[in-house]
Every structure is written in structure tokens, then in C-alpha cells.
Design a protein around this nucleic acid. Structure first.
Lengths: 333, 333
DNA sequence: CTTTACAATGCAACCGGTTGCATTGTCAAG
DNA sequence: CTTGACAATGCAACCGGTTGCATTGTAAAG
């Protein structure tokens, strides 16, 4: 069925149009150097022959291939797709193609991917990297690199700051009369988790709240359910979860045990993953994932242009607390 | 900060190792042609110099670049990421890299993407294409192509068959005493929607049910909410939704109106997007998105190997009905 | 001690573009 | 009419690998 894709080359076009190969090349890359009607003729011949430029050949001589890689811990985690999408759309606008890869929450795989891509792309956007800092720096030396949600001095980065919103949540909880809450932790290595935890602890100190730390297995719905035992055992009247998956898991398990939210337990999520579609609607922190994707791509472009300031860029994206219906005063103070 | 990536070439390695360029090349691609210790020496020198093969150059001479493209209507729609992930993981296993692109639910963009990728990849996996059939065939002639959830004779394809499960759902509804239900439609052009609708209508005929068709604006949560008016107006005692997003939207809106599910209204979703985490847990149809991704990649590999049977492959993935808690007899028969 | 066969390696062309420099043509200024 | 300047185009080297064929070395066979 499929015909051998014996592709048309500039040589054939040159032959037919009666010009040199270099003129054909220029007709596409630097048309201003050629007489307008020459350009027109060449392009017409090319069109007619169904010419498709060979990107490999082009890349070989120019050294630029118009590709970047976007690497995330887990494509299937719904937190990442909007980021992937916005970066891809922005890339598309600038005629870049983006490789997507998933390192399966595994630092080794991460290195392997970086190496595999290093010859195929001009630069990489690496999200929520689990790699040790010095390794990251070493890679950044050889390959233009932009980080999202990872803080390494000397590597351009985009950080989504949920901290201030979570502080607001803590303040709100304190105001409602809570004295002891829990933070349901995400992956210990994740910058986002560290930042969220630190912000919560700081605010708790300020407002005189006690915080119990409960570790989750994974930032997933099931882990949220599993964590309810520990949460209840800690004797808290409310909790802040690392993300909405954990929060929704907690919500489901509490409902199964007949514990009503927010009357008997207050809950705050993070990342606004489900909008108002949980039951009851979850108070959470907005995400800025789309902006992060777009911004990271722009930063990478700046790095590729070797704009010196780009290398120390540190873009912070602020979030806000979205108040819905999972916050109330504690039952028994 | 970043050093100029003046990359090491085989020529330099050849020089240092005291061999010809071709031997260096073979040390990596056909080591069995060289004496083992020569290979070892070359590899050691390469390692030491930090050699990274230039994929463009390699691709230029071999004609194979080890890349494929995976194109979906909308990366941010959570239906696709698991498929993307499984395809990418499988590709990774075979040393392929995958470009990801999003055509924004727009046929024109789709063509543009196919053209852009045609020079950069060996083949394409296209998911839920919105393109007219003859255009699709034309592209398939020039570029190895595998479709997911789109039925075009002559193009290898993977179809996720929710039909039989939905028939089962209809049978169940009939058995519970429902006489009139609705199908809340997805995108009219989508093969998945057409197949689901046809299966439901067929089963309804068999079991003597009347079906009202209600069109949704988009297959999203919000559209689900919006559709509740039309659903209720049609006087049905239950509904099957094109997917779980619509179903969850319906669930939320019904709850807001104080209509309890399943006592006052029965509901079936499709694709098992939320697991048991809706309230109440939604009866739905399992998805096979991960298998579809893996399978599509394998199919594409077969096409690339020019295995003749591959071109008429039509893989059907069966699903099953997952019964949870949104089905009950109708209140007033 | 030749001849033969094959393993190991080198040589050089090639993949399909891009680009610095040389060449040709044209027109205006001298 | 000559000269210079510049626009338009051609020539050929180059990007960094791969690969068919030629060459060399070596051990087994005659």
C-alpha cells in the first residue's frame, strides 16, 4: 500500500528548475538573496515535485534541529499535561517540535533520557527533577536546560509558588479555631513538597498551630485513602494535603467512614485538579501549570540565544487560595 | 555558564585511538566486525573524550532517525495521557524517541503537524483524528501511519471497543425496569462516539428501550452540568454518557438539584476516568488506553519493517462494564 | 613454502542540505 | 568606453556519521 518514500532532494529541483543546488537551498532559507521570480519558479517546481526538506541534513550543517525535549516524572499524572500542552503550543508557534518523555519517577531513567536526547535536541525542559543537584549542574553545562519546580542556582528555572496560598489556608484554619492540623506530605525529594511543607510550618508557628506530618506513599488517590488512618490517629481537626489527589482520596475515605466534611473534619488540597467537582467542593490552591509551560519554553529560547541574563533566571509564579466548601470550625475544641 | 558544546566527533576518537573513522563507527554500530580489544579501546577513548553520537549525521546516512510522532486532539484531556505514556515507554524500550503534538481538536492543525513531522520521524501514531478519510489515506501513502480510535480501511488501526460493554449496560437498565433512557453524546465526528451511540441504539432496540439523544457541547465536566436540563426535560429515568467527564458533570448538577443517584436517576459513564472516586461511585466502562498505546507502537514498528499484513491490521480492544453504585430501578415506571 | 580463505581494518563515496567565496551580469559613475 | 559596485547565482567544501569495496594480516589447508 505505501509507496517507497523516495524523497525529492534539492538536487532534483535544481535540475528541473535549471539552477544550482545552492539556489534551491536559498529559495527556502534566504529568499531575499535571490531574484523574486527565481524564488517563485524554484518554489513552484518544489511544490510540484512534492518536496519536503530533509531536517536531518539541514540540522547536520546548521547545527540546529528545531527540537526540544520536555521531560516529566509521569505523563499520566494529570498535573503535568496542561504544562506539556502549553509548552508544546508555544513551541509549535515558533516552529519547534517537542519530544516528550516520562522518567517514571526514577532518577536513573532521568539521566538516561537526558543522554539520549542530548544529540537530538537543542535544549531540554525538565520538570520536577529527582536528580541530585550536582548531577543536574553537570548536565546543564553540556545541554541548555530549564527546570520547572526545582531550585538549583545557576540553572534557569520556573517555580510555582503555592507557599503563600497555603499560608493563607493555615491562617484561615487558625481563625476558625483549629489548634492542631496535619500536613499530608507528597514525595520527599520534590521541591514542591519541600516548599509547601516549609510554608505550612512557618505559618503554623506564626498563628500558633500545631502541625503533625503524615507521609503518603504516593501523591495519588489511593494513597490518600490509605492515609486516613494516620490522619485520624494523630488527633487533628483538619488537614492540608500535598495535592488534590491525596485530598480527594481522603474525602472519599472519610465519606465511607461517615465522617462529614467540613463539619467533622476540615480539608485543603492543592493544585485545583478537580475544579468544583469533588463532593463536597474542595478548598484548594490554584495551579499555574499552563503558565509554567509557556514560560519555561520562552526561557529556553532565551538560553539558546545565549542571552546571558537567562542563566540566572528564576521565575516565580504566584497562586491563590480557592475557597470552596471544605473548611469549617472544629467540632470539639 | 554553559560551555560551548563543541562536540567530539568520530574523527577525533579515530585520531586518538589510532584507527580509521570507519572503525570508530563500527565500534558502536557493528562491534562484531571488529576485534574485541579494538572495540574496547575505541570505546574507552570515546568515553574519556565524552563522545555523544550525532543523531542527525547518523540519520542522514542511514535514513532512519529513531523518532516517531504521537498526535492527539488534546494533551490535557486525561483520557490521552495514559496512552501517550504507554506508547512512550514502549518506544523507549526500543530506543525510539517520541514527539508529542496536540492538534487542538482542529483538522487543519492536524495536517500542518503531519507535514511538519514528515521529515523528522519514521512514522506517526494519530489518535482520534478529525480529518476526512481521503485526506488521511493520502497522508498514509507518504508516511507510515497508525490510527487509534479511527476506522479507515487500508490504514492500520487500534480501536477501543466500548460497544459490547454499553450493550450490557443497556441490558442491565432494561432489566431494572427502565423504559426510556438518554444517550449524552460526545463529539459527532469522533469514531468513539459514533460507535458508542450505534451500540446503544442497537441494544435498546433489542431490549425494547426508547433512547433520546442529547448532544453535549464538549466532552467535559462543565458540558455535563449544562446537559442536565435537556436530560431532565426528555423525561428519561436514566442516561448513558459518552464519557466519565460528562457523567461526573451530570452527577454534580443532579446533586446540586437534590436529585439523588441512583434512586431518582440512573447513570452510566464510559472510560473509567475517576475510578471509584466519584460520589456515588460511578458505573462505567473500563478503558484500554494503555494497551492501545503499546499496541499502536508495535503496529507502527511492523509497518516500518514493511511487514505486508501490518497494513490491514485492525486491532480491537474489548472493554468490560464496571458496576458500581449508580444503577437502580426507576422510581415511577 | 605457497595458496586460500576469512577476519580485521582502511579508503572514499555518499546521505541532503548550507554557506563562504568566486564568478558573472548589469548599470551608473567617471 | 572603462571602471567600480553591487545584485544574482554558481562552485565546492563541509556538517558527522555509515557502508560497499579494497587492502592487509594471519592461520589453516594443500
Amino acid at each position: 500500500m505505501p509507496t517507497k518514500p523516495k524523497s525529492v532532494t534539492i538536487a532534483q529541483i535544481a535540475q528541473v528548475a535549471g539552477v544550482a543546488r545552492s539556489s534551491v537551498s536559498r529559495a527556502f532559507t534566504r529568499p531575499e538573496l535571490l531574484k523574486p521570480d527565481t524564488v517563485a519558479r524554484i518554489r513552484q517546481v518544489a511544490e510540484q515535485l512534492g518536496y519536503v526538506p530533509n531536517y536531518n541534513a539541514r540540522a547536520l550543517s546548521t547545527g540546529r534541529n528545531g527540537n526540544i525535549a520536555f521531560i516529566v516524572p509521569d505523563v499520566a499524572n494529570p498535573y503535568f499535561p496542561p504544562m506539556i500542552r502549553s509548552a508544546q503550543l508555544e513551541a509549535d508557534r515558533r516552529d519547534y517540535c517537542v519530544f516528550l518523555a516520562d522518567f517514571e519517577e526514577n532518577g536513573l531513567q532521568e539521566t538516561k533520557l537526558l543522554e539520549r536526547f542530548s544529540g537530538k535536541v537543542e535544549g531540554v525542559i525538565l520538570v520536577s527533577s529527582r536528580m541530585p543537584e550536582e548531577q543536574l549542574l553537570r548536565h546543564a553545562e553540556r545541554l541548555p536546560l530549564v527546570l520547572i519546580n526545582r531550585e538549583v542556582s545557576g540553572v534557569p528555572r520556573v517555580l510555582i509558588d503555592a507557599g503563600s496560598s497555603l499560608k493563607e489556608a493555615v491562617k484561615l484554619l487558625a481563625g476558625l479555631g483549629h489548634r492542631h492540623i496535619a500536613y499530608l506530605r507528597g514525595p520527599a525529594i520534590a521541591w514542591a513538597n519541600q516548599q509547601r511543607e516549609a510554608s505550612i510550618l512557618e505559618a503554623a508557628e506564626e498563628f500558633g498551630l500545631q502541625v503533625s506530618l503524615v507521609q503518603s506513599r504516593l501523591p495519588s488517590l489511593d494513597s490518600g485513602r490509605e492515609a486516613v488512618d494516620a490522619l485520624l490517629a494523630s488527633g487533628v481537626s483538619g488537614a492540608i494535603a500535598f495535592n488534590d489527589f491525596l485530598a480527594q482520596g481522603v474525602l472519599t475515605e472519610l465519606a465511607a467512614r461517615g465522617i462529614s466534611v467540613p463539619q467533622a473534619f476540615s480539608l485543603v488540597g492543592c493544585d485545583n485538579a478537580f475544579g468544583a467537582y469533588t463532593h463536597p467542593p474542595l478548598t484548594t490552591v490554584s495551579n499555574r501549570t499552563e503558565d509554567a509551560g509557556t514560560l519555561a519554553f520562552s526561557l529556553l529560547m532565551a538560553v539558546l540565544k545565549e542571552i546571558p541574563e537567562a542563566f540566572e533566571e528564576r521565575q516565580i509564579l504566584a497562586t491563590r487560595l480557592i475557597q470552596r466548601e471544605t473548611l469549617a470550625p472544629p467540632t470539639s475544641p
